[in-house]
Nucleic acid binder design. Structure first.
Length: 596
RNA sequence: GGGGUGGUGGUUAAGUUGGUUAUAACGCCGCCCUGUCACGGCGGAGGCCGCGGGUUCGAGUCCCGUCCACCCCGCCA
């Protein structure tokens, strides 16, 4: 008879306490460490809930003790024994530190080679190795905790939304390619050679069709795919909490989602979120923080000083304004000696990736005078106005960027975050906000307009007359949910009138023929009584990352991809046999083949 | 597509101006040890210095190229 057919695991390795002393137990797990004293052998047994010390003594069971001498790290074992008090030898660092198991039986389920890195939380191993041996990395308690949190968040989401009358419905991953937005992964069709599916970048159109179908409230925790370059907070496949509701306004969707987030924060962290969340217009966020996802834990703000800069005497400012640009300042209150001249000089290099050609700086002295490289060319009036508009007082440092508005906001917005962190100005807490009054369109450098959110987003009613004449001024009924500087969700009230949808496609420069070919099925659906509807999608991975305090999305995705989109464990993507390609009617270009 | 950081025993790092046998900690192996819990003691093994060229009497170190990982810009409706 095998060990497991005669006895079952009775407790997790984190469960037992002094009150369990005397109890007969069976634990199963992995050997964290072995301390062999010749006479007795101590083992730390680890499972996902914690670790427990096992004591093997020849006085308790000679056979078990003898076998314990063979144990090594990461052996998978089962232990039967009796819970005993450690008496005076308590380990205060462990929740189970007051007890140990006097082992009467040891079963080695499997032996382990020495792992390529140690299974411990204070691990400092390069990511490539961790990813290659991901199943070992995932044994580390810190990562296991992350996935326990993630699982809890999923469960709370599901139960909350079910409780609110949502139906959990599924949509296809293999979908029709639709232009615009993120690049799609393509999947060749064997049965229709020369044709391709796209992997869904989101269930957007399907969830709207659920509304047309009368499902009224839909949600899905679903995988999405985007073939774009990766970042710390971006993976090519990721998980969305996707939601759509009929007969609602922006406030209804936001209110419902605040309830969901509050439920998650309460359930996972025992934190009560104050509601309603702050609402802030996109314009205000850009003006004050230079970002469409401001981190409100940092009090620093930008101030526009374009008017004062126009005839300020400082050529760099004047030229930027003359060229149609703007000048903004970031005020750092009383940094003392934390912002040395060399640190300030280094900020230019920091701002350059955002397109800024330089960062000007000034120290505000007693009486409002400035100590700055350009102080002597600056007019008194300009300086006075700038002091006033930034709220600068003696001891402050002002940082300036003069350029196109896009560059100025990007650079100063990034400096605000950078210096906020560097100077220790990031306060504790959960600062949620809704970004509202988003632009409907986004203007490219060539002057063309694209949908800022997606082309099914409803314009504000009052902007409808300007859709064709002045697209830049049109606002969308769209909203982003931002938490501590992270975009965690975004959605909108959709267009449900076919004629408005047609006008929008038009404004985006799509011809009737194109619209028909690409979105004909949607417009057709909207001819059959579509309800007014709207929705939102949250990035579950990002939520999990923030809930866990993780540094990277990779720490909350079980099997993540590298920055080049590869899986180091399975070696995906990989080449395939010519026969497989033949079936699909695909030929790899000779020059591509030659390189691989 | 562009910029940056890194790659040295299993792991993490040190390695000076180019110069003898590449160093340490942890891990690993063996022996000893009945109260350890970062156990301890003694002994030991383990290196294509990412890869390929080049300069040089001589390269871990300098130069060129290349691969991989990470961070950022572009990109991400």
């Amino acid at each position: 008879m095998s060990f497991l057919s005669e006895r079952k695991k009775t407790h997790s390795a984190g469960a037992l306490r002094v009150t369990d002393v005397g109890r007969s137990v069976v634990l199963c797990g992995w050997v964290q460490s072995r301390r062999d004293h010749g006479g007795c052998v101590f083992i730390d047994l680890r499972d996902r809930e914690g670790q427990t010390q096992i004591m093997f003594s020849p006085d308790v069971d000679a056979a078990a003790h003898a076998l314990a001498g063979e144990l090594r790290g990461e052996f998978c074992i089962g232990v039967e024994g009796v819970v005993a008090s450690r008496g005076g030898n308590v380990n205060p660092k462990l929740p189970t530190g007051a007890i140990e198991i006097n082992a009467t039986r040891l079963e080695v389920f499997s032996r382990a080679e020495t792992p390529p890195f140690q299974i411990t939380d204070d691990l400092d191993t390069n990511e490539a190795l961790r990813l290659k041996y991901r199943y070992l990395d995932l044994r580390r308690p810190a990562l296991q905790k992350n996935f326990i949190v993630r699982s809890k968040a999923s469960q709370l989401t599901r139960s909350f939304l079910h409780g609110q009358g949502f139906l959990e419905l599924e949509t296809p991953c293999l979908v029709k390619y639709t232009p615009g937005g993120a690049r799609n992964f393509l999947v060749p069709s064997r049965q229709n050679q020369g044709s391709f599916y796209a992997l869904a970048e989101s269930p957007q159109i399907f969830k709207q069709l659920f509304m047309v179908a009368g499902m009224e409230r839909y949600f899905q925790i679903t995988r999405c795919f985007r073939d774009e370059d990766l970042r710390l907070d971006r993976q090519p496949e990721f998980t969305q909490i996707d939601v759509e509701m009929s007969f609602v306004t922006e406030e209804d969707v936001q209110g419902c989602m605040e309830g969901m987030l509050a439920e998650i924060w309460r359930g996972v962290l025992s934190v009560e979120l104050p509601r309603p969340f702050l609402r802030m217009s996109h314009d205000e966020a850009m003006r004050r923080f230079g970002s469409d996802k401001p981190d409100l834990r940092i009090d620093l703000e930008l101030a526009e000083i374009t008017d004062a800069a126009r005839a300020s005497g400082f050529k760099i400012f004047e030229q930027a304004v003359a060229a149609g640009g703007i000048v903004k300042a970031l005020r750092i209150p009383a940094p003392g000696d934390k912002l040395s001249r060399s640190v300030l000089d280094g900020l230019t290099e920091y701002a350059m990736p955002y397109g800024a050609r330089g960062v000007a700086f000034a120290r505000v002295l007693e009486g409002g005078a400035w100590q700055a490289p350009f102080a002597k060319v600056l007019t008194d009036d300009a300086r006075t106005a700038m002091n006033e508009q930034t709220g600068a007082v003696p001891g402050d440092v002002l940082l300036f960027v003069a350029d196109r508005a896009k560059v100025v906001n990007a650079a100063l917005g990034a400096l605000r975050l950078h210096l906020g962190q560097k100077l220790g100005l990031v306060r504790e807490g959960w600062r949620f906000l809704w970004l509202v009054d988003m632009p409907l369109f986004e203007q490219a450098d060539d002057g063309s307009f694209a949908a800022a959110h997606h082309p099914f987003t409803s314009p504000r009613l009052e902007d409808l007359p300007h859709l064709e004449s002045d697209p830049a001024r049109c606002k969308a009924r769209a909203y982003d949910c931002v938490l501590n500087g992270n975009e965690i969700g975004g959605g909108s009230i959709r267009i449900h009138q076919p004629e408005v949808q047609a006008r929008l496609f038009h404004a985006l420069g799509l011809s009737d023929e194109e619209v028909q070919r690409k979105f004909g099925f949607l417009l057709e659906a909207f001819r059959y009584g579509p309800p007014p509807h709207g929705g939102i999608a949250f990035g579950l991975d990002r939520l999990a990352m923030l809930l866990c305090g993780a540094n990277s999305l990779r720490d909350v995705i079980a099997f993540p991809k590298t920055q080049k989109g590869t899986d180091l464990m399975t070696d995906a993507p990989s080449s395939v046999a010519t026969r497989q390609l033949d079936e699909l009617g695909i030929l790899v270009k000779p020059e591509v083949l030659a390189k691989s």
